[in-house]
């Protein structure tokens, strides 16, 4: 229970960064924190007490295993996050080339 709450707190820290920061790099990092928190929360739901990882091995009797389904979903989610981060970085570089700054309030002002 307290683990879930702490993980949710981490998600809220990421949300705080997205909402209040004006530096584009900080916003990209906050989106990264959001992704970490969500992935970790899903895996926390999958944990079962006194069980082993869901991989069979030769000569080892089948023991109680943790839930493999969220692990499979999060595995794809992490790689997608990597692609998204790359795309965000590309956008930020493009904006920097045009405006010479990462400050979103200045970028907004220069638009009109």
């Amino acid at each position: 229970m307290i683990v879930y709450l702490l993980c949710f707190l981490l998600l809220l820290v990421g949300l705080y960064g997205v909402l209040t920061k004006r530096d584009l790099i900080k916003i990209i990092l906050s989106i990264g924190i959001l992704g970490y928190a969500v992935n970790l929360l899903l895996i926390l739901f999958a944990y079962r007490k006194d069980s082993v990882y869901p991989i069979l091995a030769k000569g080892k009797e089948v023991a109680q295993m943790v839930d493999p389904l969220p692990q499979a979903l999060v595995l794809t989610s992490i790689v997608i996050e990597l692609g998204t981060t790359a795309m965000l970085v590309a956008l930020a570089i493009k904006l920097f080339e045009k405006y010479q700054t990462f400050d979103i309030s200045q970028i907004r002002r220069l638009k009109g």
């Binding site: 992935n39 895996i43 943790v66």
Partner: peptide, 15 residues
């Protein structure tokens, strides 16, 4: 590290 503690070695490597 948390993934390792939660018995998810696949995810720990990828992360």
């Amino acid at each position: 590290l948390s993934f390792l503690f939660l018995q998810a070695p696949d995810l720990a490597i990828v992360q």
